[in-house]
Amino acid sequence: MSELIENTPKTTGERVGVSDDTATTRASAFWEGVRGISPILLGVFPFALIAGVAQVNAGLEPFTAVAMSVIIFAGAAQLATADLLGKDAPFLIICMTALIINLRFVMYSASLSPHFSGIGRFWKWLSAYLLTDQAYAVSIIRFSRRHISGGKLWFYLGCAIPLWVLWQVGTVIGVVVGLKIPESWSLEFAVPLTFMAIMLPNLRDWAAVAAALTSGIIAVAAFNLPMNVSIIVAAVSGILVGFGLESFLERKAHD
């Protein structure tokens, strides 16, 4: 009960501020979001293009390859799925691999949750479907800095919707172009390059470096394991090693 009383003024003040939540302020929050995400879109486009190319090169029908970007809408998982489909991996392994890669969304979901607490179910579902690394990163930084008149939801949608549109357009172009690119161009190498561009700048501490190194080494050592389980084994090991090292370093710092 005391919690409820404590929380009420804060949440209502954020959301319901009467003069603050009009069509005009919502539109301006939306455009603020669009401006926030736009520098990042430039880097997302080649990623979408490559996803389209990879999906069609894995043997998917062009229509299925385009639909995959709408149904899954998560780049790294889509590329891993395409790769494993091309290698005839068992379906259970493909599902597990894709979902392990997407586990990070739980972290984003938890972090955004207090900011979306008052919105209706439709908007929650829409926001969840549109959740990406980029929309999360831009929104959470802005949410923590200052009040957005017009509401956080609309700022978030301003980030998330242009990214969704660009992802679908990029995939379609990739699917069309991918069928025509000669194999000698080695365009499939753009996939690990894209992942490097996402991962390396975010290795900010030793525990994260250890997680990446462990996982990478195990993935290479185990890559010929039956049924393509190597990615799952490697990722889980890397997560545990990173977590273990962080716990160890923290305990040492406290001593």
Partner: peptide
């Protein structure tokens, strides 16, 4: 640790 581990693999 999911992003660094999964992507590195």
């Amino acid at each position: 640790f999911v992003p660094p581990a999964a992507l590195s693999a």
